[in-house]
């Protein structure tokens, strides 16, 4: 079914629920669905498991830690290198109010890819000999050790794309692609925040990165490209 287009990010999250597992795209601030994350905060849902690359200083996901809505973070950057200021999430973690499942970045995205592609689990060499292998099955193939990692699906995927057509086909801009196309495949409900929605046929079919079959909802959130200052870099 073609995606439903919602007037606001808040409306697009009408059925988000307490305890949901939510995949959130973006690398740093780039390709991150800021409007959907703010709407998630405004929805007030609690005990969320957030799967994302980073939750650092100034990241909009840290807003959900400020309000105590996050129960668990699964990702590769639960903190940033800065020692001076603690994030809301690090405070929650230190107070025992939130858990962290730290994962190598490539393992995280492969687990999400597996979930979207009908693969239950896979063996990877990444993390062998480190704390990442703790509690996981190990197996030797061709003389090399591997650990078993399982698929990581979400109830919702919140993603950011550049343009969509009304069939949900998505294009991305530059490094804003990152985790978004994979996360789009791996949730029961995929919601894309996009800058423009065009008629079918207006996107070059060769340029489509996320096929519309993966996209359930769209919300248009324009942004001003002439002011990069509104996007902070990392520390």
């Amino acid at each position: 079914m073609p995606p439903q287009i919602f007037p606001t990010a808040f409306d697009a999250l009408f059925d988000v629920f307490d305890g949901a597992v939510i995949l959130v795209g973006g690398f740093g601030h780039v390709g991150h669905p800021h409007n959907l994350v703010r709407a998630l905060r405004d929805r007030g849902v609690k005990n969320l498991t957030i799967v994302a690359n980073n939750i650092g200083l100034g990241d909009s996901l840290d807003l959900l830690a400020e309000t105590g809505q996050i129960k668990k973070f699964i990702g590769s950057f639960p903190v940033r290198a800065s020692r001076e200021r603690m994030t809301h999430f690090e405070r929650l973690y230190r107070e025992g109010l939130a858990e962290v499942e730290i994962t190598p970045q490539g393992t995280m995205v492969e687990r999400i890819r597996a979930a979207g592609a009908g693969i239950a689990a896979f063996y990877t060499p990444v993390g062998v000999g480190t704390i990442v292998e703790t509690g996981k099955e190990k197996r030797v193939f061709n003389g090399r050790e591997y650990i078993l990692e399982t698929a990581l699906p979400g109830d919702f995927a919140l993603i950011k794309a550049y343009k969509a057509d009304k069939l949900g086909n998505l294009t991305y801009r530059r490094t804003a692609r990152n985790f978004n196309p994979i996360m789009a495949t791996a949730a029961r409900v995929t919601i894309a925040e996009v800058e423009e929605v065009v008629e079918p046929g207006e996107l070059d079919p060769e340029a489509v990165v996320t096929p519309g079959i993966y996209v359930d909802r769209l919300v248009i959130c324009p942004r001003d490209y002439h002011d990069p200052a509104i996007f902070q870099t990392w520390d």
């Binding site: 980073n54 590769s76 950057f77 994962t103 990444v126 993390g127």
Partner: peptide
């Protein structure tokens, strides 16, 4: 001593 850290892509890179 800090109790929390970030792996990022480092484990993938040293492996591959």
């Amino acid at each position: 001593e800090r109790g929390i850290g970030s792996i990022g892509g480092a484990m993938d890179l040293v492996t591959g």
